[in-house]
Design a protein around this nucleic acid. Structure first.
Lengths: 275, 275
DNA sequence: CTAATAGTGTCTATTAGACAGTATGTT
DNA sequence: AACATACTGTCTAATAGACACTATTAG
């Protein structure tokens, strides 16, 4: 494809010939979530967990130098579901990652080049599986979600070097279409409509926590209940009470005879997912 | 477009020139649900409610003479969400119908003509709003869902003249992709992958009953709690206990001072949706 | 010993399930 | 009167929330 680097977006669009492509193109964007540990200052304290999302810096127009979700075109001879698998493989060198279709975005002007429709997928992965280093330009961003009054949501992404802050308003609809429509109030650093994809994914994940076992795709083989609870807490954005959490999770996990020690406090039993 | 009628599918495909179209096309299919009354034999008994879905008989290849969901191509200058609205308007002459995106289907060979990706939408409507008669070839089918053992689901659609029966197996996945994949075991009369769309919609609707107010899109302005309960029962596929149902629904409805009489039994209060 | 987390017991509040009973129209 | 549905009261079972308590390690 076209790899020439253009100085300005105007210049790029002037030289861009949509007829070289199809009238309508289909892409996939992958919202890849994982959990990261933020090391504690105190040797006794456990690491703090955060949600993290993989972003890629764009090297060319449109949206040059902005961040976006990894993605790409769906090939004509490739099933829609296969595209995100192929992209994830090229991006992380991993196969068998949990993938679920999120939503298909199709506003007319979402891509300034031409008409592009994009089906987004949510991927969940345990970071410990990621041995290979990331492709150039890719980076994991910690996610912090602030749910505020008036249905305005603030999301801050941080990879240690860059901070991305965007704001979305959830507008309640009358009765037609889905419950909410979303309006981007502030967004300087993310490309396309990717702020919407990130919010949709966070909400979907939050809902799915209750009635599915998707979390375990983000957990290592063995984990403590404390760790699992922290992942729940960070996804739900609130503290849970220990006994209540353990009651609910009991049916989904099996205790192993291994223990996690060395934390400066009572060791904890390691559990694994009960299928 | 091409309206010539071909005698056989082979003949049709021979004359069909994919290069006349784009390499890749996007369509929408609309799964339109409503509730129908089956009149009771006994004057005292209340009408039995059934889910119903709108199907259209195909007049041309591919899948000539099979039934399919109403749908059509997404125009290049039309937002994805607008396409189902436009199609519903032309099909039912109604606007402001509840629409929600369901899923995007993108298997390579789902349409024998060319590569077609289809985003399906679920529409919910109160049948009383449908004053105009349906387009030729369109018909409402009552839906009966039989959930059997081994994750095999039987669905029977009936419009009084035609009976469509298909069977889908829900295959549990390991961890990658969604919880289930679906396999069509038997399907003689529905076009494309539309059996999957219908099942996906029924399951989505069932889930959304619990945590949203979508049902009210299928209800008239005024309704009795008995009617509302019947709609719940037919969607969930099970009987509910009166007191439990009334406790749960109480926050979502307001009692009016109107009554429904003439049923050969105690009149019931009419309620409306509390927003 | 102390800080920090692991893990359990138990009381209470809330919600769901079950069933019986009363109410009131039409024929 | 009889049938059919409307509607309510209440007991019980199950679940969720809250809090206090005990256990066990590294330093």
């Amino acid at each position: 494809m076209d790899n020439k680097i253009y100085a300005t977006e105007g210049e790029f669009l002037k030289e861009y010939d949509p007829s070289k492509f199809d009238r309508l193109a289909l892409t996939t964007d992958i919202l890849m979530f994982s959990v990261s540990n933020e090391e504690a200052d105190n040797y006794r304290k456990t690491d703090k967990k955060k949600m993290s999302v993989l972003l890629v810096k764009r090297g060319n127009h449109p949206f040059k130098d902005k961040w976006c979700l990894p993605g790409g075109f769906v090939q004509v001879d490739e099933a829609l579901d296969e595209a995100p698998k192929r992209i994830l493989k090229s991006e992380t060198n991993l196969e068998n990652i949990y993938l679920e279709q999120l939503y298909t975005y199709g506003e007319v002007d979402r891509d300034p080049r031409m008409r592009v429709i994009s089906t987004s997928y949510m991927a969940l992965v345990d970071k410990n599986r990621l041995k290979d280093k990331l492709n150039a330009g890719a980076s994991w961003f910690d996610v912090t979600l602030y749910e505020e009054k008036d249905n305005v949501v603030d999301i801050v992404l941080d990879d240690g070097t860059n901070t991305i802050h965007f704001t979305i308003k959830k507008v309640l609809r009358e009765s037609t279409t889905d419950r909410y429509s979303f309006e981007i109030l502030k967004n300087d650093l993310l490309a396309f409509d990717h702020p919407l994809v990130i919010l949709a994914g966070l909400e979907r994940l939050r809902n799915k926590l209750e009635y599915t076992d998707v979390v375990f795709n983000m957990m290592p083989e063995l984990f403590t209940l404390g760790e699992l609870q922290q992942v729940y807490e960070v996804i739900l954005g609130k503290k849970l009470l220990d006994p209540a959490f353990r009651r609910i999770i009991a049916k989904r996990v099996v205790k192993t005879n291994k223990m996690k020690t060395g934390g400066g406090h009572r060791p904890s039993a390691l559990f694994k997912y009960k299928k």
